[in-house]
Design a protein around this nucleic acid. Structure first.
Lengths: 221, 221
DNA sequence: CTCCTAATGTACGAACTGGTTCGTTAGTAA
DNA sequence: TTACTAACGAACCAGTTCGTACATTAGGAG
């Protein structure tokens, strides 16, 4: 979602296939996130580009494939961020809290990505299903969680029997909801879940919640 | 979302204003949930109705107001369900768990409602803002949570300082995400969050999570 | 320098879409 | 019975939307 920067050669800016393609993808990301798949207009995307609608069809084939490319690009960005997560030097409790915070921060920093995912769910993930790229590779975050979970259970700190994918769902759901549903939640309950002054409050709350669940005293069960 | 049943007088089924209006609302709910606001077609709604497009404009004014009416109707249904919640006879821990389960069940039982809310968030809750009906009355669930929370803290069982609206957000986020993001989550992680055989697992997990958070040992802080 | 192709731009059209115009009829009050 | 209005339907319209046919040119290979 970062805006594509100026080409290296400012004068000879015609005939730069890579650049044209990247610019279309960038503008399309904004437009799809803004208006949804059906609401997005191919003409509008073209107009906000330095090139024409013809190029969208030349490079991507059509609206459908363009949206798939947008999703592939957006997901590859989050995967890259996840791969740079380094929590191996922390104890399990601190590591989980750190991971939850990173997830929290990433959702807050990329509302457009959240919107794209929400939109793709409205369309029942049909574009992800159509993408060869997205079906294959799964999230690095899962592997990280798995390692922390193993360490936490080995040391006896974690009592919960949750697996990595479910814990990821638990963490993501709160982070995702806070961003995706801020408008209806705000309108109905009068509370802005993404207000800057509430940020630390919710960030802490998420960590507390996850740690409480993982370390809860289960002797009484 | 329930399909409108046949009129009381099967023969004289012409000229029934209430029935026509209800049928439009019912079909519109399905169509908006299926395709999103922009994706929904007024012609399609009309075609699946026993009346014509003219009547949609006659009764509702336009596509925008029709969607607002759909939201009003959908929200009024969930409010009604919330009002029938009776947990006053339970101890705080059991009451919170029961409430979480009811929220869980309601989300699972009404995927169309979840989709409508997700769609309305894409449109930044502009239709809720435009509705006089929806802005005013707030959720009965909040009051119920507030009472349980007070009782739990009075008895010393609950140590968390969370308020009712935030606890509602915590519970809703998990329930909402599980339904709203099942498609992308399933496609990316190979796990169906709404699979029938996993239902009890997630229902229990939610309750455990909330109770663990509320009753966590905080002496070490 | 010439030629060839990837890259690009212009203009257009067929189908669709929200909304409206005009006219008709069922039911009811007097 | 009559007259009046709420309820209804068919056809239409103006603006839009995705996609394409056709024409053009930059820039590297030879």
């Amino acid at each position: 979602m970062a805006t594509v920067e100026e080409p290296t050669r400012p004068a000879g800016r015609i005939r730069d296939a890579a650049r044209t393609k990247a610019e279309i993808l960038d503008v399309a990301t904004q437009e799809f996130a803004r208006a949804g798949y059906t609401g997005a207009r191919v003409d509008e995307i073209a107009a906000r580009t330095r090139t024409t609608k013809r190029m969208i069809y030349y490079y991507f084939g059509g609206k459908e494939q363009l949206f798939t490319a947008v999703l592939e690009h957006a997901y590859s960005a989050i995967r890259q961020a996840e791969q740079e997560v380094d929590v191996d030097h922390l104890d399990p409790v601190a590591a989980i809290r750190r991971l939850a915070e990173l997830t929290f921060d990433h959702h807050e920093a990329h509302p457009d990505f959240i919107r794209l995912v929400a939109i793709e769910n409205i369309h029942e993930a049909e574009h992800i299903a159509a993408s060869e790229q997205l079906g294959a590779l799964n999230s690095p975050a899962i592997e990280v969680i798995r390692r922390i979970l193993d360490a936490g259970r080995a040391s006896g700190l974690f009592t919960a029997e949750i697996d990595a994918v479910d814990l990821h769902a638990m963490i993501s759901s709160f982070c995702f909801f806070r961003v995706s549903n801020r408008h209806t939640f705000g309108a109905l309950f009068g509370r802005d879940l993404v207000a800057a002054e509430q940020r630390e409050h919710y960030r802490t709350m998420l960590g507390d919640m996850v740690i409480a669940y993982l370390t809860a005293d289960r002797t009484e069960d």
